[in-house]
Amino acid sequence: MNDLELFENYKTTVYRYCLYMLKNKGDAEDVCQEVFVKAMLADRRELRSEKAWLLRIAANECHGLTRRRSRGREKEQEAFLQAAPLHAVQSVESGYERRETKSEFGLLLKDVKPRFREVLLLYYMADLPMAEVAEMLNLPLGTVKSRLNRGLKSLKKRMEEADRPSKKGSEFHVSNY
């Protein structure tokens, strides 16, 4: 797979991972860019799974950025920190319909703790085997399973809470679950 094919095949997966981990479009674009730059400079001949490898780089980059940000080390990027946060898709749909959009789900997802969100994204969004997620994050398989369960629980809870007001007061038919 050449560089352009690599980018075309995995840009969305890598970018979405970065976007929902970092919760900021500008950061996600920069990290996604860095992931592919590193990938293009690397020797990829021995790779078993390009997707897993790219996401591993993405995970490292996201961890690194989050860590640096939390410590305030990168003063020169302060302006960047003020970039617009992840917005929901602009919509004029009604309250219920809007709540049911994919982006609404994304907003709920971003409230899940990062360590749970990370495994949810890798396992469900990127569709990686659980063992690969464990290897990628350098975690025992049991820890990944546990984080996945806790992440699912947290996400379900948020989805139910988001759904609840509409059930009480909405004139729309409510649940599709």
Partner: peptide, 27 residues
């Protein structure tokens, strides 16, 4: 809410349509 439903929503997460062409150029 089932795990399968969550999986479907995760697979359909939007990416906010970044300008991938511009990103490719920067890369």
């Amino acid at each position: 809410i089932t795990e399968q439903q969550i999986k479907q929503k995760m697979l359909a997460l939007p990416d906010g349509s970044p300008n991938y062409d511009e990103m490719w150029t920067r890369i």
